[in-house]
């Protein structure tokens, strides 16, 4: 598993390095009053990244396949929480902070452990309400407001 990841990573880093080299070639090579321009630093870094990722590929190739201890990963709760976070982020600006945060927290609390429903509801409500109140009313910050149909 680890070896596979290192191969993919080295190829990806190689690609990033090459892209940065290509990208910096299209930048101006000097700026006014100076022999060095904005391209030099990313060019050096990109080349170094290319060399290092080749080295990583080689190292991964040389290292013998180690049998790592396999651990059980909890994919299901992770996926639910990940999707919940994504939905939370995408709906934050349209539905507003309080409602989305409340729903997000409640879903995640219950995903972590299916118990204490009332306590979960209470904590989610307190957290979202308190943060909104303190930040928007007391500190005069900006957070996405309540949706129009709710006001």
């Amino acid at each position: 598993m680890e070896l596979k990841f290192d191969y993919i990573a080295s190829v990806l880093f190689l690609a990033v390095g090459v892209l940065f080299i290509i990208g910096s070639r299209s930048l101006g090579s000097s700026s006014y009053g100076s022999a060095v321009g904005p391209d030099i630093f990313p060019l050096i870094l990109g080349s170094a990244l290319v060399l290092l990722s080749i080295r990583l590929f080689y190292e991964t190739f040389v290292t013998k396949n180690q049998q790592g201890t396999k651990e059980k990963l909890q994919y299901k709760p992770f996926l639910i929480i990940f999707v919940a976070t994504l939905v939370y982020i995408l709906t934050l600006e349209t539905i507003g902070y309080v409602i989305t945060t409340f729903l997000f927290l409640f879903v995640c609390f219950q995903t972590m452990e299916r118990s204490k429903v009332i306590l979960s509801l209470l904590i989610s409500a307190c957290f979202s309400g308190l943060v909104y109140f303190l930040y928007v009313e007391v500190l005069k910050g900006t957070l996405p407001d309540w949706p129009i149909w709710f006001q």
Partner: peptide, 14 residues
């Protein structure tokens, strides 16, 4: 952890 973990995500996002 049931309450701690989701709250860390929420604080990060906030």
């Amino acid at each position: 952890k049931q309450f701690l973990i989701p709250m860390i995500i929420a604080i990060s996002i906030f």
